[in-house]
Amino acid sequence: MDKRWRDIGVLAGALFAVNVVARLVNHFGFDGDDAAADRVSLGMFLVIGLILAVLAFVWGRRRPLGDWAADIGGAVVVAMLLTVLVGPLLVGDSPFAGGAGTFFAQIWFYLGATLVGSLIGYLVATALGLDHRSQSLKRFAELKTTKPRRVVRR
């Protein structure tokens, strides 16, 4: 159980670190250039989605959907709260500096990127037949075909 919490914490920390790097690049590299800041933010969401796609693919092969989805969901919620509430403080802004619309847009974009990334990773594993359920069904089918047929006497 400790390993499970450690994995959730490491994932949340990694997702938050991606956000911190994007914020620092925006702050020091593109201060005042909104178009460049938007591209960096889009890149951040793509990297977050890619991380979760790879993780969903790997965890989806080893564990049932409910187990890894709960872990990813917990890590995403923690990372999102850190990103929205603590992230702006690192570069000297307020979490609500852009107004309520910007605050909630960050939340929706973050949730959207994480959901799409996780779904893509799991759907690729499922399409290739590598997910946990497909492998379990494959083992079950192989087991049932190897047993000899029982002869019924009348």
Results as ranks from 00 to 15, higher is better:
7 D>S: 12
11 L>W: 01
12 A>V: 03
12 A>L: 01
15 L>M: 08
18 V>S: 01
20 V>R: 00
20 V>P: 01
20 V>E: 04
21 V>F: 09
23 R>G: 01
24 L>R: 07
25 V>I: 15
26 N>K: 12
27 H>W: 06
29 G>Y: 02
30 F>G: 10
31 D>A: 14
32 G>K: 07
33 D>Q: 04
36 A>S: 13
38 D>H: 10
38 D>M: 14
38 D>L: 11
42 L>S: 14
43 G>R: 05
43 G>Y: 03
43 G>N: 04
49 G>Y: 06
51 I>T: 03
53 A>Q: 05
55 L>G: 01
56 A>G: 00
59 W>P: 00
59 W>D: 01
63 R>Q: 13
64 P>Y: 00
64 P>T: 02
65 L>C: 07
66 G>P: 10
73 G>K: 00
74 G>H: 03
76 V>L: 13
82 L>K: 02
87 G>P: 05
91 V>P: 03
97 A>P: 10
101 G>E: 13
101 G>M: 14
102 T>Y: 14
103 F>S: 07
105 A>T: 11
112 G>N: 07
115 L>Q: 02
116 V>C: 04
124 V>D: 02
124 V>N: 03
124 V>G: 03
129 G>Y: 09
129 G>S: 06
130 L>Y: 11
132 H>T: 05
132 H>A: 10
137 L>I: 11
138 K>F: 11
138 K>G: 11
139 R>S: 15
142 E>A: 15
143 L>V: 12
143 L>P: 03
144 K>R: 15
147 K>W: 05
147 K>I: 12
